[in-house]
C-alpha cells in the first residue's frame, strides 16, 4: 500500500459520496447518467465476487462493501426514489455498444480462463468505458451542473492516482498487472478533455457548458 493507492481510493470514495449527497440534497438526479451508474454497479459486482471466497485485508473488505453499497444506493435513487427527475431522454447511449466488445474481450484476453477471473477481467474492461454514457450525456445537453463536474473530477483523479500507484509498484515491487494498467491508461485518457474544461472553466467559477 502506497500513498498514491490510498489517495486514489479516497478520491474514488469521495466521488461516489459527492454524487450521492448531490442527489439526496437536491432530491434530483437531473444531468446524471443512470446508465453509467448501472455500469459501475455491474463493475463492482463482477469484480468483488472474491469477497465471498478470498480474504485480503480488513481495509480491502470494508472498501469493497462500501463501494458496492454506494453503487447500488445511487442506482436505486436514480431509478427508484427520484426517477421522476431522471432525464432518460438524454441518457441515450447504447449500452450494447460497450457491453458486447467488453464481454468479447474479457473472454479473449484474461489471466486464466476461469469464471471468477473472466468476471474480474470483464469488470476491469467495463470500468474503463463505464463513464462514456455520462460524458455522452454532457456533450448532448452541452452542460453540467458544477457539483456533477466535481464528481467527475474526483473519479478522474482516482484513475490518475492509480496510474501513479502502478508506476510506484513497478519500481518498488517489480509488480505490474498488464490488463489493469492498459485499461487504466485508456480510462484516464477519456477524462483528459474533461480535466481541461474543469481547470479552465469550473475552477474559475464558471459553469461547465460546451459551445
Amino acid at each position: 500500500m502506497n500513498v498514491f493507492r490510498i489517495l486514489g481510493d479516497v478520491s474514488h470514495l469521495l466521488a461516489m459520496v459527492i454524487l450521492l449527497v448531490k442527489i439526496w440534497r437536491s432530491k434530483s438526479c437531473a444531468g446524471i447518467s443512470g446508465k453509467s451508474q448501472i455500469l459501475f454497479a455491474l463493475v463492482f459486482t463482477s469484480r468483488y465476487l472474491d469477497l465471498l471466497t478470498n480474504f485480503i485485508s480488513i481495509y480491502n473488505t470494508v472498501m469493497k462493501v462500501v463501494f458496492l453499497l454506494c453503487a447500488y444506493v445511487t442506482v436505486y435513487l436514480i431509478y427508484g426514489k427520484f426517477r421522476k427527475t431522471f432525464d432518460s431522454e438524454n441518457d441515450s447511449f447504447r449500452l450494447e455498444f460497450l457491453l458486447v466488445p467488453v464481454i468479447g474481450l474479457s473472454f479473449l484476453e484474461n489471466y486464466s480462463f476461469t469464471p471468477t477471473e473472466i468476471l474480474w477481467t470483464f469488470s476491469i474492461y467495463l470500468e474503463s468505458v463505464a463513464i462514456l454514457p455520462q460524458l455522452f450525456m454532457i456533450s448532448k445537453t452541452g452542460e453540467a451542473e458544477t457539483i456533477t463536474t466535481h464528481y467527475l473530477f474526483f473519479l478522474g483523479l482516482y484513475r490518475a492516482l492509480y496510474l501513479a500507484n502502478w508506476i510506484w509498484r513497478y519500481h518498488t515491487e517489480n509488480f505490474y498487472d498488464q490488463i489493469a494498467v492498459v485499461s487504466g491508461v485508456v480510462q484516464t485518457i477519456f477524462y483528459c478533455d474533461f480535466f481541461y474544461l474543469y481547470i479552465t472553466k469550473v475552477l474559475k467559477g464558471k459553469k461547465l457548458s460546451l459551445p
Binding site: D9, R47, D50, N54, I56, N60, K64, T116, D177
Partner: peptide
Amino acid sequence: HKNGSEHDEL
C-alpha cells in the same frame, strides 16, 4: 502478474 483471485487493488 498476480494470478487467480489475488487482486488486492480496488
